[in-house]
Computed example of a mutant assay.
Amino acid sequence: MSTKDSTFQDFPELAKRSDFTQKKLKTLRDRFKSIIESSDYSEQITIVTTGSYGRGEASEESDLDLFILLDADEPVKEAIPDVLDAIKQLIDEEVPKSTGETTTFGPRTVIKFSEMLQNIGGSEDDNESLTRRMLYLLEGTWLYGQKRFERYRHRLLEKYIKEDSPDHQLSKFFLNEIIRYYRTIATDFEHKVSERNKEWGLRSTKLRFSRKLLYFGGLITVAEVSELTQAEKVERSISLLEKPVLERVAALSDSESQSTREIFRIYEQFLTAISDPEIRQTLEQTDKESRHDCKQYMQLRELSSEFSNRLATWIEEQFNKEHPIHHSLIF
């Protein structure tokens, strides 16, 4: 039994989704390689995926959040139009569910990696830039261009853990960016459902579970490396961020940790619920005003409160009360 298999051996839904994700990622990587390696820009293209595929929890019902990094001076439409068409066709064949109306992700969302390194926290740092940057670090994986993906992640992380960053202290810049992103997600959710009339119930439920888990995975990474030197922080953070969040939690905790098992149990319940077509449809049709009349939504909301408590308990058990992460999350 592999380490990954043993991580989820008592959690069949988590194991099934992890297995599905790895198999689909291999298929996608092989197929992307076959259509891109003959391009004149094959050494300038990197394809990044986040979302359920980045978290290792994808299923047949999952869409594919991705964006493309192109290191070339030419305008994209002039440089790789045929490649973009081929990428779009491949995704339609392998992962037919649409990512929806968004310019943050998609088979025609192409940016330069240098753009991800600029204006961090500045007036031109919009929500799309923040989202791509944080998801790249916290849950991203590669579909094409593995070595470039890894090199880019290293360079991006060094923007947050700089050479002049103090040793043996929390990386406050990185921590503050993770907090900013999580709060931005919550604010953006309110905007989408209030101003743009997006569906409410399923979005709210995902915010309470998968988005919260993403945030938690970032917090524990920063906390875990706090006592290291700057260079060690970068390398250890990379090794942790390479793992999907639940595997990261398992790697940092004792194999018999009850808190870890409870986190897995609750998250599995969430994934099982939203995989049920009837429950998913009910959640999609539930709005804020009718939420108290929706049994499924209220059950998941109650479960999400338990999830929050379990995540908080895990941090308290993993990092003693003198650890700076506790104070920094308040102040």
Rank of each mutant, 00 (worst) to 15 (best):
7 T>P: 02
34 S>F: 01
46 T>F: 04
55 R>L: 10
74 E>W: 00
96 P>T: 09
47 I>P: 08
79 A>N: 04
38 S>F: 02
97 K>N: 14
86 A>N: 14
78 E>D: 15
90 L>S: 06
36 I>L: 15
56 G>N: 10
96 P>L: 07
67 F>S: 03
11 F>C: 06
89 Q>C: 02
58 A>S: 15
31 R>G: 02
9 Q>M: 14
82 D>Q: 13
45 I>E: 06
25 L>P: 12
42 S>N: 12
30 D>E: 15
76 V>Q: 05
90 L>M: 12
20 F>I: 04
59 S>C: 13
13 E>A: 14
76 V>K: 04
66 L>K: 02
96 P>Q: 06
47 I>W: 03
87 I>E: 05
14 L>Y: 09
42 S>T: 13
64 L>M: 09
54 G>C: 06
96 P>K: 01
68 I>C: 10
47 I>C: 08
63 D>A: 05
80 I>M: 08
39 S>F: 04
81 P>Y: 07
89 Q>D: 15
68 I>T: 08
9 Q>S: 15
32 F>K: 01
48 V>C: 02
60 E>H: 08
16 K>C: 05
78 E>P: 00
98 S>N: 13
20 F>W: 13
45 I>S: 06
43 E>H: 11
35 I>M: 12
61 E>M: 12
20 F>S: 09
11 F>D: 11
38 S>T: 13
65 D>W: 04
61 E>S: 14
65 D>H: 04
3 T>P: 01
58 A>F: 04
26 K>W: 00
28 L>E: 07
13 E>W: 00
36 I>Q: 05
17 R>C: 10
55 R>F: 05
27 T>Q: 14
87 I>P: 12
34 S>Q: 13
13 E>G: 01
80 I>A: 09
5 D>P: 00
57 E>S: 04
37 E>P: 01
69 L>Q: 03
48 V>P: 07
85 D>W: 01
49 T>V: 09
13 E>K: 07
6 S>R: 14
87 I>M: 04
94 E>Q: 14
85 D>Y: 09
67 F>P: 09
60 E>N: 09
74 E>P: 01
28 L>T: 09
20 F>T: 04
35 I>Y: 03
6 S>G: 00
83 V>A: 11
23 K>Q: 15
27 T>G: 02
87 I>K: 01
23 K>E: 15
84 L>P: 11
70 L>I: 06
22 Q>H: 11
88 K>V: 03
36 I>V: 13
56 G>K: 02
19 D>V: 06
93 E>Q: 15
35 I>H: 03
82 D>H: 07
37 E>R: 09
11 F>W: 11
79 A>M: 00
10 D>A: 10
38 S>Y: 00
88 K>W: 01
87 I>L: 04
53 Y>R: 02
77 K>F: 11
34 S>Y: 00
42 S>A: 15
19 D>L: 12
43 E>P: 00
86 A>T: 05
73 D>W: 00
7 T>S: 08
29 R>F: 07
98 S>A: 13
22 Q>M: 05
58 A>C: 08
94 E>M: 11
56 G>I: 03
95 V>H: 01
92 D>G: 12
3 T>Y: 10
18 S>Y: 10
8 F>D: 07
56 G>R: 04
86 A>H: 07
46 T>L: 03
33 K>V: 00
94 E>T: 11
7 T>F: 14
70 L>S: 07
9 Q>T: 12
37 E>C: 11
49 T>I: 03
14 L>H: 05
58 A>N: 06
92 D>I: 00
54 G>V: 05
87 I>R: 02
88 K>H: 12
58 A>I: 06
